[in-house]
Design a protein around this nucleic acid. Structure first.
Lengths: 203, 203
DNA sequence: CCTTTAACGCAACTGGAGTCCCGTTATGAG
DNA sequence: CTCATAACGGGACTCCAGTTGCGTTAAAGG
């Protein structure tokens, strides 16, 4: 009885354990960006990280499990905020940030792989949703400010506006295959802005 | 030299070959919807289809290869068209069709798996893009008609409008994890309609 | 500093996905 | 109908992702 063992890394999280986690998560990000989700095994990631494969299997178990941990880590680091003073300006800045991220040679494939992993595993999906919830929360204030300025109707759902800006860009990345360029970003921002002003996102 | 062999199924496509293809594609769709993309192997699909696993490996080689064939098949079958007479009506009908598809217990997971497969394999990605290109082409005329009626500015890109309707729903399916319900669909249609009228989608 | 044991690394092992060989079925042409 | 061979099916085989056992290193508490 009571031979229950706590998850590895929770009892002695300092020194070597932290180093290992950092090295493996970094290697996992690199591998995901380069090879994609499906051609990955923990042994390869462990080799890149300079760590025994047994360690990787013991602590994370599966590739999706590791990705979930990576997402939790990514959610912790925050993004630089911008405040242009107008809603259209803020939304355009957001759209361009997403655009440059998704079209980046490293970040684009990485995000595609992260979303792919989430589609294959419930635990990873939870982590992904938390990650985007965090990001959306960071951007929401610019919509709230616009409501206070009277730029958009009261009752507008900030999260809905933020999602409307990102959605077309992710649609291209995952579904459509079309280009993810700055005109696309600006168009997404403009469309969301127009719709928001017209009260399309009031709850 | 010239020991090049044509792809299996191309020389004698009749009778048994066609039956096999049909059975395997059906089984593949079922398996994708139930288990998802990553826990799939061709042997299991072959077993479901009542076909030798050697046949499946010889003709399709890999799971993504099979999914690509399934997508080609799906692109061939057309969707029922609707004509309500107004752009908002047509876009709402489209949004609700996508919504009911993505929230369907079988179709939702299936589409998620198809997109996941496309994210892992270039050939499958091509097939997916062709599939959505076909679907978008089927819907585009309702925007063209709206331009002719003067509902939206000349120069509006029909494909861009169609994409704007679908994008928020796919965003929820793949990225956000939020509910895919009828209010969401109607909101997407309304937002796209408003933005289109305001000229946000002119090229 | 000393002790306990969490966490690690190496190497041997295992199971199942994917391949190969070869005999059988049945398509399509003449 | 007959023939050549495309396509299929069963089963043995291979190879590597993931597991297990055990000795080693070092984190945390005293």
């Amino acid at each position: 009885m009571s031979d229950e063992r706590p998850d590895p890394g929770t009892v002695r999280p300092g020194g070597r354990t932290a180093k290992t986690r950092e090295a493996v998560l970094r290697a996992a990000g690199d591998a995901l960006a380069e090879d994609g989700f499906d051609r990955l095994d923990l042994a390869e990631i462990a080799r890149r990280a300079g760590v025994g494969k047994t360690t990787a299997y013991r602590r994370w178990g599966t590739v999706p499990g590791l990705v979930a941990d990576l997402l939790t880590e990514m959610a912790a680091e925050s993004l630089p905020r911008t405040e242009t003073g107008t809603l259209l300006g803020d939304l355009t800045a957001q759209a361009r940030l997403v655009q440059s991220t998704l079209s980046d040679p490293r970040q684009g494939p990485l995000f595609k792989a992260l979303i792919t992993a989430a589609a294959c595993d419930a635990q990873t999906a939870d982590a992904l949703h938390r990650f985007y919830r965090t990001r959306t929360d960071e951007w929401a204030p610019c919509v709230t400010a616009a409501i206070e300025r009277g730029e958009v109707p009261a009752g507008t759902d900030p999260h809905e506006v933020i999602r409307a800006v990102s959605a077309p860009l992710y649609y291209r990345l995952l579904v459509d295959g079309g280009p993810i360029d700055q005109p696309t970003a600006d168009r997404a921002a403009r469309a969301a802005h127009t719709a928001a002003k017209a009260g399309a996102f009031t709850s």
